[in-house]
Design a binder for these strands. Structure first.
Length: 501
RNA sequence: GAGCCGUUAGCUCAGCCGGUUAGAGCAUCUGCCUUUUAAGCAGAGGGUCCCGCGUUCGAUCCGCGGACGGCUCACCA
């Protein structure tokens, strides 16, 4: 049992307390990081270190140790990295050395000492003082292999990160990506908003929401599936450029690409179109690739990606017409029978009865499914997919020439949807009709159809400027920029079933 | 929700065709050791083989059911 080792550590802890020693003090103040030592002296030779008069003061976890009778080597790990420390009995003194002998891997240690170079040439701190700063009762994972059990890595992420510099680096990159996105929008005069996470109507996307209850008001509230409708209210309210970067919640399954809560940046710009959003997206992704990866080409899983703009653009009706050998005008005309025949040819889920579920909007949904079935696997390099049917885009502006379609794109990279953008629908009459159509879909059994939102419609009726908006899934973006195969590798604490009691 | 695969010591993993007391490395404990770095040498302890039921003289191993996880699919971003 793990109890063996933990029990031994508990006994050491009790022995310290019995001897009047505090095993959890908080009076040691490190003055340097291990990286600072290496940065200052990494190039110095033995003679230079001999002449060096400074003393370093460090704190961190003991992550390895090699004991001798009257001396010991260990590695100390802090937030910046790890550094070797040499503890010698005749320097720290008999009493301190005897105490030090009782300390374990995983314990927190404070060290003061001067640098030197070992025989093997490793920069090392020769301790003049050692202090126990915190006793660990449970051991760290095995030093060589670390923690490889994926379940344990996710459930006890702290063990994963304390063991793996690579994992720590992935999450540092995530933090830098989020910071860079903020700076990207703020530098373009966007206003950062915080809108409600709990909403009376869960709108702005097609997804099932989580439900919660407000006791004092005695109403059900929904965790938001998107901030979209509130950000549009801010367009009405005079914020011409607005973004929000935070969590949304969707009551769907989990997979390597899905977590029930995920991070989204949504941004809206008045007097812009979805085409402007394409340019902005290319700029953002290139900037992130340059700063995070250091290159516009990168590998993601089995793919070699090239983010150099301009990115490919693919029209849904054109692609379907071309691949299926159909007449483009008939496809744009949303000829249901024609698409039905094509769907039967492709087979699979496309055989279902779209008319029963979607009524007059059936052809639009069918076209989308057809496109996804025949094209999604090809969408490896960055690709803007455009010309979406009105029926699947209840919040997007109609195309001026082609009213069955909207001015919208989705960005695909590595066959994954990375972003969704459109010129926003600011015609309140059209918006009301679209939401009413969604209500019919809901009544016919589509429980992800958009809900009616009278409060939002009232805001639109007060006047929203022409605008374009976009949402980018941050987790998938981080996956791409860190070459991660699973969304759980870029979310610190991914959702899992509760562990056995 | 479906299919496939997995679960053995604290960690990383072996374990043959169903057969005595389930093994190794690291970690832990004891002893020696003042330039090691997966330190070394000598010794020791540590197991609900995920859980339950069944088959069998006998089950870590075979069958059925369940839990949890991974992957793929479905839903979705």
């Amino acid at each position: 049992m793990e109890g063996d080792e933990t029990e031994g550590r508990r006994q050491k802890l009790q022995a310290m307390r019995d001897a009047g020693v505090n095993p959890y003090p908080n009076d040691f103040r490190p003055e340097h990081t291990t990286r600072e030592v290496k940065t200052d002296l990494g190039e110095a030779d033995a003679a230079a270190l001999e002449a060096f008069e400074g003393v370093f003061c460090l704190a961190g976890r003991i992550v390895s140790r090699r004991d001798f009778g009257k001396a010991s080597f260990l590695h100390l790990q802090d937030r910046s990295g790890r550094l070797q420390v040499y503890v010698k009995r005749n320097i720290v003194g008999d009493e301190a050395f005897a105490a030090f002998k009782q300390w374990d891997l995983g314990d927190f240690l404070g060290v003061r000492g001067r640098p030197f170079l070992t025989k093997t040439g490793e920069l090392t701190i020769e301790a003049s003082e050692v202090h126990l700063l915190g006793k660990a009762l449970r051991p760290l994972p095995e030093k060589w292999h670390g923690l490889t059990d994926v379940e344990a890595r996710y459930r006890q992420r702290y063990l994963d990160t304390v063991t793996s510099e690579e994992v720590r680096e992935t999450f540092r990159k995530r933090s830098r990506i989020i910071q860079a996105i903020r700076e990207f929008f703020i530098s373009r005069d966007y206003f950062e908003a915080e809108t409600p996470m709990m909403q009376a109507v869960a709108g702005g996307a097609a997804a099932r929401p989580f439900v919660t209850h407000h006791n004092a008001l005695d109403i059900d509230l929904y965790l938001r599936i998107a901030p979209e409708l509130y950000l549009k209210r801010l367009l009405v309210g005079g914020f011409d450029r607005v973004f929000e970067l935070s969590r949304v919640f969707r009551n769907e399954g989990v997979s390597t690409r899905h977590n029930p809560e995920f991070t989204l940046v949504e941004f809206y710009q008045a007097y812009a179109t979805y085409r402007d959003m394409m340019d902005l997206t290319e700029e953002l992704f290139v900037e992130l690739a340059d700063s995070i990866v250091g290159s516009r080409t990168m590998s993601w899983a089995e793919h070699a990606l090239d983010l150099t703009p301009p990115w490919r653009r693919v029209s849904i009706p054109e692609h379907v017409a071309e691949k299926m050998g159909l007449d483009i005008d008939a496809v744009r005309g949303l000829d249901y029978e024609l698409l039905r025949k094509a769907g039967d040819e492709v087979g699979g889920p496309l055989r279902q009865d779209y008319r029963a579920k979607y009524g007059e909007a059936a052809a639009g949904y069918l076209l989308m499914d057809l496109f996804e079935t025949i094209a999604e696997e090809e969408l490896i390099q960055p690709t803007f997919v455009e010309e979406y049917p009105v029926a699947v885009s209840p919040l997007a502006r109609r195309n001026q020439e082609s009213p069955n379609f909207v001015d919208r794109f989705e960005l695909f990279i590595g066959a994954k949807e990375m972003a969704n953008a459109f010129s926003e629908l600011n015609d309140p009459v059209d918006q009301r009709q679209r939401l009413e159509a969604q209500l019919q879909h809901r009544a016919a059994g589509d429980d992800e159809a958009h809900a009616m939102d009278e409060d939002f419609l009232r805001a639109l009726e007060h006047g929203m400027p022409p605008a374009a908006g976009e949402g980018i899934g941050i987790d998938r973006l981080v996956m791409m920029l860190t070459d991660s195969a699973s969304i759980r590798d870029v979310i610190l604490f991914p959702h899992m079933r509760p562990d056995k009691p």
